[in-house]
Write a protein that binds this DNA or RNA. Structure first.
Length: 957
DNA sequence: ACCGCCGGGTGCC
DNA sequence: ACCGCCGGGTGCC
């Protein structure tokens, strides 16, 4: 098996190819390291934060004189099993940070270590306390990290061989360089260990990790003349920063020059050769700030040898050509992805030589798989093996695409250029992106590149893509997708993209490679390039782990190797080590630029958003509605009033909520509550299965009503909600913990009723009731529906192009709304939490599409979709019912009032007069004030009391 | 001479 | 390696 790891290690390291026992049955050092890294996937290595320190031991490294790897005072070393060592199958090799072998672990100790390592009982890490001058052996501090359940096994295995795991400062403890050695992580030490951060502080610091990374990055730079679009100030800043990063000769973070050596201050590793500068980084701007344009500007401005691409016209490229090209590239064609314009001079069909001589414009080749109508084929004979009848490229001409400058230098093929870092013949930029944004890149190139610029852009996509690395290396830009890249890479045959020595590789939506086991990630890591960029609005999606791949891609030594990342950054940070967090911040800051829509440039926000205005429209119920409403309200008030009298409001909280929900539903449409049978009352006499069923109904009612309940244990939004037999809802983990700690006597935190783990009922998830059939026959409107419809009808009359979001917390209400919408001939789409990812995307795409006949209305459930949801097509929002939490409404509105919104946004909130809704609005205002005062009512008691007051206010009791 | 002692050769796993 | 170990040389003092 060939793993990308191998090449990665082999890349800059001569020593990696040492082959110590003949080539046949033994493996090279780099293979061994790689294998050990591969073998331990999904194990101790994979989840370093789940590991605890078992203890440490002093061992010795022997055989130093046979190897060239040197180690510094306090330097970290890695331990690699060598099961095929002919002298001892227990052999454990010691390597320094760059992977050069230093020696072996002494035989006696290697025996238990081999057992421990092979069975994945622990990860063993080494630090050499001193030993630069040792000739034959040196000591090594070994620390054993693993899962708690393996601790005994590790200790006894070591004991069997006469070793005893110690804790802390064994061996004198004068481990050099205070503050940053293993000592720091030896838990029970009297030494000055920084107080670990609380999980909350950590999370906070984490959230802020990527906040506005733009200090000291305010310098602006004008784009080269080939960029036809004027850059905004923040884009000029980004350009300046990116150019500076690409041309940087600085040492990578944490490296210093010392005594003519280069020292990594985190691992204490020193080496003579200067570690390569990281020529690139992460552009993590929010979406909409123009990452694509900035990147195009970068390509054109820092084109080659630090100079911009010039516009000088050359005899090879007569002016007439440009005009002609424009004519042959009607925009409409491109947008539909259908191509009629095909020229025979296209690079797919012409020889590159000819292309040179005849100054044939480079053509962007867009091979849509479904399009085989175009392209009169020519000269297909030369490449029959690639030919697939179903798919052949549609081709299009783009004004910006031209023949590149005549260049005699040999193109940057990685085989010919020995050192990737040396700016040899590398010329081409490879852009890898998800398929969904491919066309956007093409559009943007066309839009932002000056018509007279000679820039060749090749779309490496589709069955007929030109799989010729020499050809690819001669382009200025090659555009491809992660899919194409990895399918080439996964093929046994060589991958052309991997044979090119790129000037620059750009990963669009770079967070896509965050899973290191994915083929596309491996494929990306294995690309050769001088400069590397990651574009991503969300560089960290889940955890710190996500960052490693990005750092690894940037080839930031030594973190491109997982072990060093884990030991130096990830674990210290997850253990709450302040120094580790600071190192992480330094690291991220050095390579990342991030601005959000609220970032300021010269005192002004980066992007001016259109205005947003909120109107409240009061709705009066009809007489009949009012009568019925009051009846429902009276009934509810009686019940709740009784609870108040008994002092059991919180005990019966679920019932209280249910009553409120019914009232709120009624305000929207009377029909809504007919389907939801009263969940209140009758808790005493019923069979367990009936009880269970009722509880499920209750929890569904509570959670499905959008009330944003919080768990009374953790005081946060419910995660994995469960309901107790006494009808209170908690996070599953929280209430289980309570029960565990209180054992037999566990009581419900809200009502003190006895609770048991086996009596918790889980929330089955939103399960659309299939009672839409009975709603259809007897359709009656409601006052609120009428109010909405008259708004929509007026809007349609005034401006057909305006799109609206109709938002409710009740998906059933959305279903009801479909009826009058259909009736009036509105074209609409819908997005709610119950939809599959696939149908969501479909609904979204349909709605965001601006062409005629696209839906003008989206029915949206308040909490559907994440913050990432982009609904900028809409500029009108109708909030059908007030939410408990005003922030939820804001968030929802933000989905259209965000970057990319061109129109002013108008929001209409419907509130039924003299109803629970009005009272909710009052409570909202109160809550808002509390938030503004940063006064969240921290403890449970306060919150309970606040709840009771809320209910009192809502029911006017 | 089936030991002790001496001193040279030697040395990871 | 300023060690330990091995194995050959040697053998009163």
């Amino acid at each position: 098996m060939q793993f990308p790891w191998f090449r990665r290690f082999g890349g800059g390291l001569e020593l990696s190819s040492i082959d110590f026992f003949g080539t046949d049955q033994t493996e090279t050092l780099s293979q061994a390291i790689r294998r050990s890294a591969e073998d331990t996937t999904a194990s101790v290595e994979d989840e370093p934060e789940a590991n605890v320190l078992f203890g440490t031991i002093q061992g010795s490294v022997v055989g130093l004189r046979y190897y060239t790897g040197v180690v510094n005072k306090g330097e970290m070393v890695s331990l690699v099993r060598e099961p095929h060592n002919p002298y001892d199958r227990n052999a454990v090799m010691v390597a320094n940070v760059y992977g050069s072998q230093v020696g072996h672990i002494k035989r006696q100790l290697a025996a238990p270590m081999a057992h421990i390592m092979d069975n994945n009982l622990a990860k063993v890490e080494g630090v050499v306390p001193y030993g630069v001058n040792n000739t034959f052996t040196m000591p090594v501090h070994l620390s054993f990290w693993g899962k708690e359940e393996n601790k005994e096994a590790v200790i006894s295995e070591l004991n069997r061989h006469g070793f005893k795991l110690g804790l802390g400062s064994k061996g004198g403890g004068q481990v050099a360089s205070p503050g940053r050695t293993i000592d720091q992580f030896f838990a029970p030490m009297k030494k000055v260990t920084a107080i670990p951060l609380t999980p909350e502080q950590l999370k906070n610091a984490f959230d802020k990790l990527f906040d506005d990374l733009m200090e000291d990055k305010a310098r602006e730079m004008e784009a080269g003349e080939a960029v036809s679009t004027p850059l905004l100030p923040h884009q000029k800043q980004a350009l300046a920063w990116m150019t500076a990063r690409e041309n940087s000769t600085d040492l990578p973070p944490f490296w210093v020059e010392k005594n003519s050596l280069y020292l990594n201050v985190l691992t204490n590793f020193a080496i003579q050769e200067r570690p390569e500068s990281v020529c690139g980084g992460i552009l993590a701007d929010d979406m909409g700030l123009g990452k694509t344009l900035t990147t195009i500007a970068l390509i054109l401005t820092n084109f080659h040898n630090g100079k911009p691409l010039s516009l000088e016209s050359t005899p090879f490229f007569p002016e007439s050509m440009a005009t002609k090209r424009k004519k042959t590239a009607p925009k409409e064609n491109r947008e539909k992805g259908v191509e009629e314009t095909v020229t025979e001079e296209s690079p797919t069909t012409s020889h590159s030589k000819r292309q040179h001589e005849d100054s044939v414009p480079i053509v962007i080749i867009d091979s849509d798989d479904e399009d085989d109508s175009a392209a009169p084929k020519k000269k297909a004979k030369g490449k029959t093996e690639e030919k697939q009848p179903k798919t052949h490229p549609a081709q299009r001409k783009v004004p910006c695409s031209h023949k590149k400058k005549a260049q005699k230098k040999s193109p940057g093929l990685s085989k010919s250029s020995s050192k990737p870092g040396a700016s040899g013949g590398a010329r081409a930029t490879l852009i890898v992106c998800p398929l969904s944004v491919l066309s956007n890149w093409l559009d943007q190139f066309e839009q932002h590149v000056h018509a007279d610029a000679k820039l060749s852009v090749y779309l490496y996509y589709g069955a007929e893509r030109k799989r010729e690395s020499r050809f690819l290396a001669r382009q200025d830009v090659v555009l491809t997708t992660y899919n194409v890249l990895s399918s080439d890479y996964g093929n046994k045959k060589s991958s052309p993209l991997h044979d090119v020595s790129w000037l620059r590789v750009v990963l669009d939506e770079g967070h896509i490679i965050r899973n290191p086991n994915a083929l596309q990630s491996k494929a990306v890591l294995d690309l050769t390039a001088e400069r590397r960029w990651i574009l991503s609005g969300t560089p960290i999606q889940n955890s710190l782990k996500d960052l490693w791949m990005l750092i690894s891609f940037l080839k930031m030594k030594p973190f491109d190797v997982r072990e060093w990342w884990n030991r130096v950054i990830q674990r210290p940070v997850t253990l709450g080590d302040t120094k580790g967090l600071k190192d992480l911040q330094t690291l991220v800051k050095g390579i990342t630029l991030r601005r959000t829509k609220t970032s300021k440039v010269g005192g002004r926000t980066v992007v001016q958003l259109p205005e947003r205005r909120v109107f409240v429209q009061h709705v009066a119920l009809s007489e009949e509605e009012r009568r019925e409403y009051e009846a429902v309200k009276r009934e509810g008030r009686d019940i709740i009033g009784r609870y108040f009298a008994e002092g059991t409001v919180l005990t019966n909280y679920a019932d209280v909520l249910a009553i409120l929900v019914r009232l709120r539903q009624f305000c929207c449409h009377p029909q809504l509550l007919r389907s939801s049978t009263s969940a209140a009352g009758a808790t005493d006499t019923s069979t367990p299965s009936e009880l269970r069923e009722r509880l499920i109904k209750k929890i569904t009612l509570v959670l499905g009503s959008g009330s944003d309940e919080e768990c009374a244990v953790c005081l946060e939004s419910l995660r994995q909600p469960v309901i107790t037999y006494c009808a209170h809802v908690y996070c599953k983990a929280c209430i289980c913990e309570v029960i565990r700690s209180e054992q037999q006597n566990a009581k419900c935190p809200l009502c003190r009723a006895q609770i048991k783990i086996q009596e918790l009922v889980e929330y089955p998830g939103e399960d659309e009731d299939s009672d839409s059939s009975d709603t259809k026959d007897k359709w009656l409107s409601s006052s609120k529906v009428d109010a909405l419809m008259s708004n929509l009808l007026r809007l349609r009359q005034e401006d057909k192009s305006i799109k609206s979001l109709v938002v409710s917390q009740f998906t059933k209400f959305l279903s009801l709304l479909e009826i009058p919408l259909k009736e009036h001939g509105f074209s609409f789409t819908r997005l709610d939490g119950s939809m599959s990812q696939r149908s969501r995307t479909k609904a979204l795409q349909a709605f965001q599409d601006s062409s005629q006949g696209s839906p003008s209305i989206m029915l949206l459930s308040l909490k559907a979709g994440g913050v990432g949801l982009n609904l900028t097509a809409a500029s009108r929002v109708f909030l059908m019912d007030p939410a408990w939490n005003p922030a939820a409404e804001d968030q929802c509105v933000d989905r259209c009032h965000r970057l990319g919104q061109k129109k002013d946004v108008v929001i209409t909130k419907f509130i039924v007069k003299n109803s629970v809704e009005e009272n909710m609005v009052k409570i909202q205002r109160k809550k808002q004030k509390l938030v503004e005062k940063a006064f969240g009512g921290r403890n449970v008691q306060e919150r309970k009391q606040a709840r009771i007051e809320e209910i009192r206010a809502l029911m006017e009791l």
